[in-house]
Simulated scan of single mutants.
Amino acid sequence: MASMPTPHGSQSLYEVFLAVARAGSFTAAARALGYTQSAVSRQIQALEDETGAALFERLPRGVRLSEAGRVLLPHAEAVRDRLAAARAELAALRTLDGGLLRLGAFASAGAALVPRAQAVFRERHPGVTVTRVEGPSVKHLGLVAAGEEDLAVVSPAAGAPAPDGVTLHHLLDEPMLVALERGHPSAGRRDVRLGELAGEEWIVGNERLEDTLFRPAVAAGFRPRTGLVAHDWIAKLGAVAAGLGVTLVPALAAASVRPDVALVTIHPDDVPYRRICAATPPVATVAATSFLRLLRETARSLEEQGVR
């Protein structure tokens, strides 16, 4: 005859104690729990050893709580309730009925890629709380590595390895467009060569061009004439609209460009691309894995639409 299972991590000592207190005997408690009587007896003995007190009075027929057992009873009930709550929360993490997703992204990823994926994620998993922080890619890579973010959308330098503690998942290669004043001679063209705009005043986000959207173009040998440094997109596009210069705009942010600025495609031989990736810890959470799947679907959709 097969032996009955013995208590394990799914039932705490306190839950076994409560079962015995409720049933009034080790045998009845064992039957209710699906354990052997000797296993329940050992669990109670272990708890009595831990508390240093006899918790039950052994009677000819069954047991009843001792004074120490009556003192322990409400505390055991509190432990049981906290364990039940913990198990429910852990189950919610597995089923995405609850939990937290800490998300990071660089600025222009928040124009189309991230919000579209986040909208679908919220519809499918309304119980999961999503927090989102915007900032440069290097910041988010550090936060993922430190375990302070679960997933981040980043643009790592071409050829750069992932930092320790980070796994990179390629999403898409994003082309750049050029933003011009509406009255600019090239504003109505189908595409433009970067060399044709070499004499223009370029508006950039950093004096070091290798740290800007120009990084791929600079690597290819194009060195623009820069006159205005503007870190904020509103300031950049405002300067373009006022005729103070031209600037590069990521394709992901194209739909959010103001109407008094013209966007022109860069010739295929010149167009700079930047690599867009999702960064996660080596072992991603269930929520991060689900969000990554949606990011990939959204990235494919955006590429099919010309990333516009």
Rank of each mutant, 00 (worst) to 15 (best):
I234G: 12
V192C: 04
R215E: 15
W202R: 02
L197S: 12
L194E: 15
W233D: 15
P185V: 08
G205N: 00
L194R: 12
F222L: 08
D211Y: 15
R223T: 06
I203F: 03
T226I: 15
A220V: 05
V240H: 05
G199R: 14
L180C: 01
A220E: 07
R182N: 09
I234D: 13
A235C: 04
A187K: 07
L213Q: 11
G205E: 11
E210A: 15
K236T: 12
L237W: 05
L228S: 05
E201D: 15
D191E: 11
L237V: 09
A230E: 13
G238E: 15
R190I: 07
D232F: 13
I234C: 09
A239G: 05
A220G: 02
G238I: 08
E201V: 12
L228F: 06
R193V: 05
V192T: 01
G195N: 12
R193N: 05
G221E: 11
H231S: 14
L180P: 10
R189S: 00
W202C: 09
G195P: 09
R190T: 12
L237R: 02
S186K: 04
F222H: 11
E200W: 06
W233M: 08
G199E: 13
R189H: 04
A239W: 12
E207D: 09
H184A: 06
F214N: 02
R193W: 11
A241L: 07
R190M: 02
G188D: 05
T226Q: 04
R208L: 04
P185H: 14
T212V: 10
W233S: 13
E181F: 00
E201L: 13
D232C: 09
H231L: 06
A198H: 04
L237H: 08
E210H: 08
G221H: 08
A187D: 06
R189W: 00
T212M: 11
W202H: 15
A230L: 14
A220N: 00
R225W: 12
D232T: 13
D232L: 12
A241S: 09
I203N: 12
V218S: 10
A198V: 06
E181L: 03
N206E: 15
G199N: 08
